[in-house]
Deep mutational scan, measured.
Amino acid sequence: MPVRRGHVAPQNTFLDTIIRKFEGQSRKFIIANARVENCAVIYCNDGFCELCGYSRAEVMQRPCTCDFLHGPRTQRRAAAQIAQALLGAEERKVEIAFYRKDGSCFLCLVDVVPVKNEDGAVIMFILNFEVVMEKDMVGSPAHDTNHRGPPTSWLAPGRAKTFRLKLPALLALTARESSVRSGGAGGAGAPGAVVVDVDLTPAAPSSESLALDEVTAMDNHVAGLGPAEERRALVGPGSPPRSAPGQLPSPRAHSLNPDASGSSCSLARTRSRESCASVRRASSADDIEAMRAGVLPPPPRHASTGAMHPLRSGLLNSTSDSDLVRYRTISKIPQITLNFVDLKGDPFLASPTSDREIIAPKIKERTHNVTEKVTQVLSLGADVLPEYKLQAPRIHRWTILHYSPFKAVWDWLILLLVIYTAVFTPYSAAFLLKETEEGPPATECGYACQPLAVVDLIVDIMFIVDILINFRTTYVNANEEVVSHPGRIAVHYFKGWFLIDMVAAIPFDLLI
């Protein structure tokens, strides 16, 4: 008679799926529990143990900040960024110097990925580790590398530091407007667009060049630039800015003055950032001319202004700041037409079709709590990747769950009947059967004279019903998954307890 339990259901295979997918890609990662103190490590794979030199037993239950890997060259700011990422709910990448158990130093890129439950609360953290440099290539500990984003994938490793954006290309926007319009339909740009040429040739750093990471940081200074100062900065030398009595002219307006920039070969870094931020506020060169004239017309309804409409929906549905990093990277690809469009465009503009998908598509409701890094690593669709929660398995109709209350009560009843059979069957065979043979035949009273025979008949009927119930009862397979398919249940029961239950259900007393 089957006594099969499996009270692990309803099970959740999400954690096993993450481990299996990460292991298949030869990654070095740990999984931490966000619900406990210090976000203790609950799993670390073999790749991480080989990377740091510690065994799994030495890593388990330690804080996922990996303070046991810190050393003299470990930056405090990087460690603080990892700790801050564990307090938030967004994906974050941090470069930090770690030390192995043998004392060797290596520069590592740590990717902190939160995993949320159905309520939107962070319950786990996945920390992925990628070695960037070994100890002989690690720089000085005073050099802070965590304020910069990861290198873009479309640049060669040897040319990542030679990417320079020439400031004269930004200063000569109005001069290039006529050349853009003359391109017409034969050019790649839309009317009114501004073409910015980027020099990728390796050259020595000069005062006129600005690194790509500095251009990325310009967006942080746009908020500090007032509207009046932006307007004066875009007017140009024809209309000098008016300053109040006793007030000095704005240095932001002076930063885009061609006369002032041409007199000296070098520009201050602050002026460069502010000038680029001011130019980015204009949607095209037409807006710059309109600002000089004193009238700013409404933005025209053409394809170039609607190019950012799908980007707005993608940004609203993005799951991490990696989408913004990807957008900034692609927006700086050289030799393309940049349409400086305000994100607050007309909502009635139709979304044009684009061959290049900048932001990841909208994630469906079932995966809105899973970050983009987890979705990318697992390579699963929205119909396959579940949320991290207890999910009731989908069972067929008329199927009994093996952990249901009805099955528990039924098993206790069958257990009592088995005990009765084990006690009274030998007793009936030894004593009652002998008395029946010696006594007179009682054929007239039937079952009324033999109450134990009636009980034995009921017990046999219950055993037959138990066999039928076992054909529709779920079970737990070797992978700790609840199986509810009727065919698989029948095959599993035939290979197991079916023969024993059938022999126990045969009414031998009635056959004798």
Results as ranks from 00 to 15, higher is better:
Ala97Tyr: 15
Thr145Cys: 05
Asp16Leu: 08
Val112Glu: 01
Pro10Asp: 14
Arg242Thr: 15
Leu316Gly: 11
Leu200Ser: 14
Pro205Trp: 04
Val115Gln: 14
Lys373Leu: 07
Cys108Phe: 01
Leu338Ser: 14
Pro241Thr: 13
Asp355Ala: 14
Ser263Pro: 11
Ala303Val: 07
Thr65Met: 06
Ala185Lys: 09
Lys364Leu: 14
Ala79Cys: 08
Ile333Gly: 14
Thr305Pro: 12
Phe29Thr: 01
Ala89Trp: 13
Ala217Thr: 06
Ser261Cys: 07
Val341Lys: 15
Glu372Leu: 04
Glu357Phe: 13
Ala188Arg: 10
Leu380Asn: 04
Gly314Pro: 07
Glu365Asn: 15
Ile359Glu: 05
Cys52Trp: 15
Thr367Trp: 15
Arg366Lys: 07
Met60Tyr: 14
Met218Leu: 06
Asp286Tyr: 08
Ala204Arg: 15
Ala277Met: 12
Arg5Cys: 07
Arg73Tyr: 15
Phe348Ser: 07
Val325Ser: 12
Ala83Trp: 14
Ser278Thr: 07
Cys49Ala: 06
Val113Phe: 13
Leu225Met: 12
Pro202His: 05
Ala350Ile: 09
Thr367Lys: 07
Gly381His: 15
Thr74Gly: 01
Glu274Tyr: 03
Glu37Asn: 11
Leu87Tyr: 14
Ala303Lys: 12
Glu214Gly: 06
Leu167Tyr: 08
Arg271Leu: 09
Ala97Ser: 11
Phe14His: 15
Lys344Ala: 04
Val198Cys: 11
Glu230Tyr: 15
Asp119Glu: 10
Pro63Gln: 07
Pro240Trp: 15
Ser275Leu: 05
Gly262His: 15
Cys49Glu: 05
Val370Leu: 08
Gly294Ile: 08
Gly381Val: 08
Ala185His: 14
Arg92Gln: 08
Glu58Gln: 12
Ser207Cys: 05
Ser239Leu: 08
Glu50Pro: 01
Asp197Glu: 01
Glu50Trp: 01
Arg273Ser: 12
Gly88Asn: 13
Arg77Gly: 10
Gly306Val: 07
Ala193Val: 06
His309Lys: 05
Arg273Phe: 11
Asp46Arg: 10
Arg273Tyr: 12
Cys276Arg: 07
Asp67Trp: 01
Ile30Cys: 06
Asn128Ser: 12
Pro168Ser: 15
Pro298Glu: 09
Ser266Pro: 05
Ala204Ile: 01
Ile358Phe: 15
Ser153Met: 04
Ser275His: 09
Val222Tyr: 15
Phe29Asp: 01
Met137Asn: 15
Ile336Cys: 15
Glu177Gln: 12
Lys135Phe: 06
Ser243Arg: 14
Gly224Asn: 06
Ile30Gln: 01
Ala85Gln: 01
Gln11His: 13
Lys362Met: 08
Ala34Phe: 01
Ala303Trp: 14
Arg366Val: 11
Val110Leu: 11
Phe68Ile: 01
Cys276Asn: 14
Ala307Val: 11
Ser26Gly: 14
Phe22Lys: 05
Glu177Ser: 14
Pro245Leu: 11
Leu200Met: 06
Phe68Thr: 01
Lys332Trp: 01
Tyr99Gln: 01
Ala350Cys: 08
Leu15Thr: 06
Ser153Asp: 11
Pro63Tyr: 01
Asp287Pro: 14
Val194Ser: 06
Ser351Glu: 14
Ile18Leu: 14
Gly139Lys: 06
Arg328Asp: 13
Ile333Ala: 09
His70Asp: 01
His70Gly: 01
Cys105Pro: 15
Glu95Pro: 06
Val215Asp: 15
Phe106Thr: 01
Leu87Phe: 15
Val138Cys: 13
Lys364Ser: 11
Leu225Asp: 10
Ala303Tyr: 13
Ser322Ile: 08
Phe163Gln: 15
Gly184Asn: 14
Gly158Lys: 07
Pro205His: 05
Ala78His: 13
Arg252Gly: 14
Ala203Asp: 05
Ile126His: 01
Arg62Tyr: 09
Ala204Leu: 15
Asn369Val: 07
Val122Asn: 06
Ser206Met: 13
Leu324Asn: 14
Arg4Trp: 12
Ser209His: 15
Arg366Phe: 13
Gly226Tyr: 06
Ala293Thr: 05
Leu296Gly: 12
Pro72Leu: 01
Gly103Phe: 06
Ala285Glu: 12
Gln84Trp: 07
Asn38Cys: 09
Ser283Tyr: 05
Val94Met: 01
Asp111Phe: 05
Glu58Pro: 01
Phe98Cys: 05
Arg56Phe: 01
Glu23Met: 03
Lys116Leu: 08
Asn38Pro: 14
Leu267Pro: 07
Ile18Ala: 05
Pro227Tyr: 08
Pro298Arg: 07
Tyr54Gly: 01
Val131His: 13
Ser351Leu: 05
